[in-house]
Simulated assay, not measured.
Amino acid sequence: MTRALSFFSALAAVLVAGCGGPRMDVGQMTAAQPVDLQSVQTVAAPPSEYRIGVGDKLDVRVFQVEDLSFEELVVDTSGNINMPLIGAVRGAGRTAGEMSSDIAARLAARYLRDPQVTVTVKEAASQKITVDGAVTKPGVYEMRGSTSLLQAVAMAEGPTRIADLTKVAVFRTIDGQRSVALFDLAAIRQGRAPDPEVLGDDVVVVDTSRLNSALREVLGAVPALAIFRPF
């Protein structure tokens, strides 16, 4: 724990000294239990795996039932959409496929025999991510739909000359707790590693090569990249 805290203390010091962008309160980043990155949908996923959010516009189709088909339903602030007969349907945090199955099951229970339901994300509401550290323009950026780590760094106009692309941290809240995973952006650029998906409210921090000597021991203790771990 002490060695890991030293890593983030050093990281915070460099950000304060050398970055003109937003300031991260690293002290608030308490750890979650280690979680395999793939289990929390950070590996780049096909559009069907996108997690629906508040404000997203959905196209909902019930095959051959025009009165239950809608070109545009907006996920409200409670995370739901409303449909005739079955009322509120949870959308936020679900995939389109999960919503389709839920709607079909509820319609089949009382109203239709073997309904065929398709839910499509017509337009994803903008979500914000923070990109900080050794990037050209640190700041808070809006993203729509699926956005990869490479794309997030590109939003900040790419890394600076002092960036260490082998150490890019993504901070995320998982089950109410703050956690972090490290990625090798150089390997991702070269196609040697998958380009993970970033989610709304993630904080991406690109390390700086000036930290190498201070962080070598700490990072050497990290057993694997691309896994959210306690610190």
Rank of each mutant, 00 (worst) to 15 (best):
G21D: 11
G21A: 15
P22C: 04
P22V: 09
P22I: 11
R23H: 03
R23F: 08
D25G: 00
V26M: 09
G27M: 06
T30D: 10
A32T: 15
A32V: 05
A32K: 10
Q33M: 08
P34A: 15
D36I: 07
D36G: 00
D36H: 03
L37F: 10
L37N: 05
Q38I: 08
S39Y: 08
T42S: 07
T42K: 08
V43A: 10
A44P: 01
A45M: 05
P47T: 07
S48F: 13
E49C: 04
Y50E: 05
Y50K: 01
Y50D: 03
R51K: 14
R51M: 13
R51F: 12
I52N: 07
G53H: 08
V54G: 02
V54H: 01
L58Y: 08
D59R: 14
D59P: 00
D59H: 14
D59G: 13
R61D: 04
V62H: 06
V62C: 06
F63G: 00
F63T: 03
Q64G: 00
Q64T: 05
V65T: 09
L68K: 04
L68G: 04
S69A: 11
S69H: 07
S69K: 10
F70N: 01
E72Y: 01
E72H: 02
E72G: 01
V74T: 15
D76A: 10
T77D: 11
T77F: 14
T77L: 14
T77H: 09
G79M: 04
G79Y: 12
N80Y: 15
N80W: 14
N80E: 05
I81W: 06
I81M: 06
N82Y: 09
P84K: 06
L85Y: 14
G87P: 02
A88H: 02
A88L: 10
V89S: 02
V89Q: 07
R90P: 02
R90W: 03
G91D: 05
A92T: 04
G93R: 02
G93Y: 11
R94K: 14
R94C: 01
A96Y: 06
A96V: 12
A96H: 00
E98G: 04
E98S: 05
M99P: 00
S100L: 13
S100V: 11
D102Y: 15
A104F: 13
A104G: 07
A104T: 07
R106I: 09
A108F: 09
A108Y: 12
A109F: 15
A109S: 10
R110D: 11
R110V: 12
R110S: 14
R110H: 13
Y111M: 06
L112S: 14
L112T: 13
L112V: 10
D114E: 15
P115N: 02
T118H: 12
V119M: 06
T120Q: 14
V121K: 03
K122D: 00
E123I: 07
E123L: 12
A124F: 12
Q127T: 07
Q127S: 05
K128A: 07
K128N: 05
I129Q: 03
V131W: 12
V131C: 06
D132L: 12
D132E: 09
D132Y: 05
A134P: 01
V135G: 04
T136D: 08
P138H: 08
P138Y: 00
V140G: 08
Y141M: 12
M143E: 02
R144Y: 14
G145D: 09
S146Q: 13
T147N: 00
Q151A: 06
A152L: 13
